[in-house]
């Protein structure tokens, strides 16, 4: 499994660069990952990321956009504004989780 170094954190990643070890993540690293893809974290961004982090261990997979909006309570429109173009994948990346595999 490849490793990469982001802002001094050495992390295990998949071939694309998504983190593969849940416990290697913390919020400092999350902010550094966000910066890598041009996102500056605000409280609203963190609300989404913290939902993804807390949802993952129970569900065993990354929440889809729909789940972040219906269960996490953050409107779809806002997710597209905060994480433009590909919100589900970008949120997963910042949260140190695999890409969501659900269709909806």
């Amino acid at each position: 499994m490849p490793t990469t170094t982001i802002s001094g954190h050495e992390i295990h990643v998949d071939d694309e660069g998504f983190m593969t070890v849940y416990d290697e993540w913390d919020e400092t690293l999350g902010a550094a990952l966000a910066a890598q893809i041009g996102i500056e974290m605000t409280d609203e961004h963190w609300k989404a990321i913290r939902f993804l982090r807390s949802d993952f261990p129970a569900q065993g997979e990354t929440a889809t956009l729909r789940r972040v909006s219906t269960v996490g309570g953050i409107p779809t429109k806002q997710l597209f504004t905060m994480f433009p173009q590909k919100p589900a994948k970008k949120m997963a990346y910042v949260a140190g989780l695999p890409k969501p595999r659900g269709c909806v």
Partner: peptide, 15 residues
């Protein structure tokens, strides 16, 4: 080297 070029997923062009 990995230190100078971290592996970051490509999210494609903005447009």
């Amino acid at each position: 080297s990995p230190e100078t070029a971290p592996l970051v997923p490509s999210f494609g062009e903005a447009e």
